[in-house]
Design a protein around this nucleic acid. Sequence first.
DNA 1: ATATAACAGGTTGTTTATAACCTTTTATTC
DNA 2: GAATAAAAGGTTATAAACAACCTGTTATAT
Lengths: 77, 77
Amino acid sequence: MPQIVGLLGERIRNLRKENNITIEEIAFKAEIDAQNLRKYELGKQEMKVGMLKRIATAFSITTSELLNFDILKENEE
Amino acid sequence: MPQIVGLLGERIRNLRKENNITIEEIAFKAEIDAQNLRKYELGKQEMKVGMLKRIATAFSITTSELLNFDILKENEE
DNA sequence: ATATAACAGGTTGTTTATAACCTTTTATTC
DNA sequence: GAATAAAAGGTTATAAACAACCTGTTATAT
């Protein structure tokens, strides 16, 4: 599982906690399955970009902002 | 196919043209299949976020920058 | 201590991404 | 016009995303 999957999961969970909402609630807003959203947060399932967009929209942010944790690494392995 | 797939495809193609490289070349750098990259550019296949990261890295940018075309829409249908 | 809410772990059928193959078409170079 | 490069269109076996189901665990409220 690519590293970015876990980092994105943490980002989504942090956003959710900051907004004081449950997995069920944000999954409903994003019109996605709550069980899958849980797996995304835990880094246990990789999502497609369509899902990325829906989750970002549910948080009222862009996909770019949702991925703002991403950085360029020197000397990529 | 979600709208963002087509927009992302255009973004990738524009980046590639700006850098004056072929589909084969950037696919090699990203360590992905050239045929699949072509489909992404044409908006004919939806990619996972792991692929997004690899493509962004191949262009020496972050995934956030790769998705900077994304905007928040008012009154989402 | 009990009940409920929220979260976590696991599974399954269907659809689709991925790696990889091939042929055809278009663009570029000479 | 011919040869080559680049792009486009199509296909397939395998793995995994997705929707959805279920049971178990932890946190919270009373």
